[in-house]
């Protein structure tokens, strides 16, 4: 346990204090949101302030060692989350990479997309195992194929209670059939035991749950639109849950992007339900304004209008 914590701290500290990496990439994100629900409630918050730092060192054969940290403080600065903190050994041309630390699990659309800064629900709450976890990762790209495999503890971003922990295996294989990269498809599989406190953070001690999950994902870039799909199933203890998620971004005008998203999910013990979202994004230099409406019939607040101010800044040296 202490070894894991020491390693995460060491990577973070090394990244923050590294004096002379070959290349250093810094990203800063601000996500402010106002939400109005059908009960007339108005709420505003600093949804997230966060960023990432990537330091790259090269030897005479090329880029070789990468240290990466990504963290945020969320919900009016009430939570601090270290999403990723790892050291990476990069192989030739990125055909293989080994990572050690807190890694993002190789799963579905997440290899090239993230719902974190979007104003609608995350499609992953019900479909997959964990977001990030501590352990060993192996990923790379060979020709038209990309792959990722992670052997991790199963604690996610919660406290590490013992070493090595319950144990989780997550993998994805992706295929990009043509050079344009307009179409990608992937298959993800995961199995193991996770500490369910990841999904119940207010409980002091989570329970361990055996889970397996599988998903298919696809991305199509066509003209002014980007269309994504992910569908799969997860079995937790004795319950199966199937989900299907779609999202579409379409550049309606030079500074106006239409965004749609929706998800259906069903367990073997309940009827199908889900949510839908429609909104607009207006990118203005480093700031993007998003306004959207989400309908989720299973929730008490079925109707939700969200206004988001999102700023992204990136520098390198």
């Amino acid at each position: 346990m202490k070894t894991v914590e020491w390693w995460l701290s060491a990577v973070s500290w090394w990244c923050l204090t590294s004096a002379a990496p070959g290349a250093l990439f810094l990203v800063w994100e601000e996500d402010l949101r106002g939400v109005a629900t059908d009960w007339g409630k108005l709420d505003g918050e600093i949804n997230s302030l966060g960023g990432s730092m990537r330091a790259v060192w090269a030897d005479r054969q090329g880029d070789r060692i990468i240290l990466f940290v990504r963290a945020e403080t969320a919900h009016n600065l009430s939570e601090f989350l270290v999403h990723e903190a790892y050291g990476q050994l990069k192989g030739p041309m990125g055909r293989w990479n080994l990572t050690l630390g807190r890694v993002r699990l190789p799963w579905g659309l997440l290899t090239d997309w993230s719902p974190d800064r979007l104003p609608h629900n995350s499609p992953y709450t019900g479909t997959r195992m964990l977001d990030s976890d501590n352990g060993l990762g192996w990923h790379g790209t060979v020709g038209s194929w990309d792959y990722g495999l992670a052997l991790t503890q199963g604690y996610g971003m919660q406290d590490v209670e013992e070493f090595p922990g319950p144990g989780l295996v997550t993998g994805r294989i992706g295929f990009t059939p043509d050079e344009s990269g307009d179409i990608t498809v992937g298959l993800s599989l995961s199995g193991g035991t996770v500490h369910s406190s990841e999904e119940r953070p207010h409980e002091s001690h989570g329970i361990e749950e055996k889970r397996i999950a599988a998903s298919l994902d696809g991305t199509l870039r066509l003209g002014r639109g980007v269309y994504r799909f992910e569908g799969g199933a997860r079995r937790t203890q004795e319950e199966w849950r199937a989900t299907a998620f779609v999202t579409a971004d379409y550049a309606l005008m030079p500074k106006t992007v239409l965004q749609f998203a929706g998800q259906l999910y069903q367990t073997d013990k309940s009827d199908a339900t889900g949510w839908v979202y429609a909104g607009l994004a207006v990118p203005l230099a480093s700031v993007t304004i998003r306004v959207g409406y989400q309908y989720e019939p299973a929730e008490t607040d079925q109707h939700k209008v969200v206004v988001q101010l999102y700023r992204y800044m990136a520098v390198s040296r």
Partner: peptide
Amino acid sequence: MTRLFPDARDYRTITVP
């Protein structure tokens, strides 16, 4: 990058102020 240089063995990132 192998699309541009099929014989490439690796690459090195260079950043210049």
